[in-house]
Amino acid sequence: MTDETTAEQLRQELKDVDAELAELRRLVGDAQARRGRDSDTSEGFIEPEEIATELTGINETEAVIDVLEQRRERIEARLNALG
């Protein structure tokens, strides 16, 4: 068995990364849409800690998206190199 990755394996990996990126982008969009909104149990104010937690979560997810986009570029380059 060889260590070489086939074009089909790279295409599948690219498909998986694209699906993961789409899901993370959806999550970030949802979080940004909810940001700063009162919950149903809120008494009309949002704690600064709650806002900070939301922003941290969004930033962390965006960082993961950046890493996945870099991975996607590397996979595409390998796929292109195969011809």
Results as ranks from 00 to 15, higher is better:
G57A: 13
T56P: 03
A7F: 00
E13R: 15
T41K: 10
A52E: 07
L21Y: 05
V28H: 03
R72W: 00
E49F: 00
I65S: 07
E54W: 05
G44I: 00
I51P: 00
A7Y: 06
L82G: 11
L79N: 01
Q12S: 13
V67L: 10
E76L: 11
A31N: 08
G29K: 14
I75D: 08
E54Y: 02
I75A: 02
A33N: 12
S39I: 03
L79H: 07
E54L: 05
L68S: 04
L14K: 14
D30S: 15
R11T: 04
E62A: 01
A33P: 02
E69Y: 02
I51M: 06
Q70C: 09
G29D: 09
D66L: 09
E47N: 12
T56W: 04
S42L: 14
Q12F: 03
R35P: 00
R71V: 06
V17W: 03
E43T: 10
G83M: 00
E49P: 01
E20K: 15
L14Q: 07
I65L: 05
L27E: 06
Q12V: 02
L82W: 02
L27V: 13
E20M: 13
Q9N: 09
D18H: 12
L68P: 07
E76V: 10
D66A: 15
E62V: 10
E60V: 04
R26S: 14
